[in-house]
Amino acid sequence: MTNIVLTVNGTQVLREVEDNIFLAYFLREQLGLTGTHVGCDTSQCGCCVVHVNGTSVKSCTMLAVQANSADVTTIEGLAKGDVLHPVQRAFKEHHGLQCGFCTPGMIMAAVDLINTYPKPLTAEIVRDEMEGNLCRCTGYHNIVKAILAAADEMRPVVTA
């Protein structure tokens, strides 16, 4: 067991954790943040994507102890009260989800992509960069549309 201190969605958290517990399970089972989903549990599907120190990671493939002293953001940390994050709003407006299982990972991945990609985003780039996130029902067309719309709103200066 190891004592870890980290910031999760702006709140400091202190917990004693088993060294072999993965971050996704720590978030879901110990902090009750069940918005982070575990799909494949083999680093393929991207349903578990969260941000660690501002960078997207697959939380099923990172130990909770590795997030010691890190700043973690999950899907629950994006909205400001009742006001949805632009990416969340775009997914709603462009019908970027159906069953919703992959959506938290999709949105966390999209936020990372929009915030960090150095060039203007195109549909082709979005499809390429989102290859680590799998959707089994909506299809990717509206997801790409939603991400481009959110990018227009979040980074109007650099979007092509």
């Binding site: 680093s43 997207s56 990671v57 697959k58 680590g132 996130n133």
Partner: peptide, 9 residues
């Protein structure tokens, strides 16, 4: 290599 999340780690 892999995807962007994998490349981050």
């Amino acid at each position: 290599i892999g995807d962007r999340h994998v490349r981050h780690r």
